Simulated assay, not measured.
Amino acid sequence: MCVIVYKKAGAAMPSMDTLADCWATNPDGAGFMFPEGGKVSILKGFMRWADFASALSGAAQGRALAEAPVAFHFRIATHGKVKPGCCHPFPVKADYAAMRRTEARADVGFMHNGVLRGLATSGSVSDSMAFAKNVLNPLKALCDGFVCNESVAGLLGGVAQGSRFLLMDGAGNVATVGDWHEREGLAFSNLNHVSRFASAADSFGGMGGYDGAPLSDMARLGLFEPCSLCPYAEWCLEDAPLCRSAFEAEAVSEGLLAP
C-alpha cells in the first residue's frame, strides 16, 4: 500500500518529518509533481531518502512551491519491479517509455494508491501504468477539461476498485478520487505512516509474523498481530488493511466479525 500526500495551492509545504514518516512506511521509491509553465513537472525515481530530500530542496529553489499544488507519492510495490521507472507520478500518455522517465513535463500527471485488477502488467509495467495508458489517456483525448470534468470523476470513482487517484494538470487543477484523510492542512490517501504503524508496532512486540515475514514489515503495511492467523491477510497485503485495530483484526481472524 502506497501513500499520496497532497498539498493544496497556498497551503504550507509538509514538514520533512512528515515526508520522512511516509518514506519509512513506503520505501520502494518516491516522486512528486507540481504545475509549472502550463505543464506538470514530474520528478521521481528516488530510491534513497537522501536523494528525494535533495531533489525536493532543489525544486524549491527559485520556485514558489507554497503557492502551487504539490503532490508526493511514496511507493510499496505490488505490480512492477522496485525500480525508478515504476515510481509515481506518471504522465497520462500511451507511451510506457515516457511514463518511466524520471524527469518529465506532461499535460496531466497521475498518482495511484491501491491495487487495480484486470490489467495486463509485467515487471516493467505496473497496474498504475496500464491504467494510465488504457483508461485515462483515452478519456483525456475525449474530454475537454479532463481533470475538472465531473463526468470523468464519476466514471473513475466507479472503476477505482477501492483505490485512490490524484490527477493534476498544467493549469494547477487537481482532482482526487476515493477516500482521503485531512490532517495538518494536507490530504493523505491513507494514514499508514501514522496511526497504524504506531498501533501495530506496539501490539507486535518481538513475536513472529505473517507467512514468515518480520513483524516490522507487517507494521509497515498497517497489519496487526492477529493478522498472522487471518485468512484475509493476503488480500490486505495486496490492497489495503481492512481492520483499524488489533481488536477488530482478532475478531475477523476468528470469524466473529465479517471483514
Rank of each mutant, 00 (worst) to 15 (best):
K140P: 00
D127V: 07
L186G: 00
G62P: 11
G157C: 07
A24Y: 08
D239V: 11
I42C: 02
E254W: 08
C22T: 13
G85F: 01
V159Y: 05
C22W: 08
A97K: 03
N149P: 11
A246W: 12
A50C: 03
S203F: 08
V147Q: 07
Q61H: 06
A251H: 13
L237R: 12
E225D: 06
L191D: 11
M33H: 04
A258K: 15
D127M: 08
V108S: 10
G154H: 10
G185Y: 07
S124D: 13
A71F: 06
R101S: 00
L155Q: 12
E250Q: 13
N173T: 13
E234Q: 12
L119V: 11
C227P: 04
K39I: 01
P138F: 04
A251I: 11
L229Y: 07
R183P: 09
E67A: 15
C243Q: 11
C243F: 10
V147R: 09
R117Q: 09
G85Y: 00
M99W: 07
L139M: 09
L166Y: 02
C87E: 13
V177S: 03
A64K: 12
W180H: 06
E248G: 04
L65T: 06
M207Q: 15
S199W: 14
G37S: 02
L215F: 09
L139R: 02
D202V: 14
S189E: 04
A60G: 14
D179A: 14
N173Y: 10
P14F: 04
D127I: 04
C87F: 10
A20E: 15
K44P: 01
Q61M: 05
I76C: 08
G255Y: 01
V152F: 06
E234L: 15
A98H: 01
R117Y: 00
A20F: 14
F197L: 14
L166P: 07
N190Q: 07
L116Y: 07
I76L: 12
A130Y: 07
K133V: 15
W23F: 05
A64N: 13
V92L: 02
F52H: 08
V252P: 05
V82Y: 03
S41I: 00
T78W: 05
C86Y: 12
E182H: 11
G31A: 07
R75F: 05
E103Y: 01
N26L: 06
M218C: 10
V177I: 12
A120E: 12
M207V: 15
W180G: 09
A104C: 06
L156H: 06
M218K: 00
Q61L: 08
I42Y: 02
Y232K: 14
L116H: 07
R63C: 01
L116G: 01
V108N: 04
V3N: 09
N192V: 08
N137I: 01
H79T: 14
I42K: 03
A120V: 13
T176Q: 10
L257A: 10
W23E: 05
L191Y: 00
G162V: 04
S122T: 12
Y210T: 04
K44N: 02
L139D: 01
A240S: 10
W180N: 03
E182L: 14
N137P: 02
H88T: 12
D95K: 15
S15F: 09
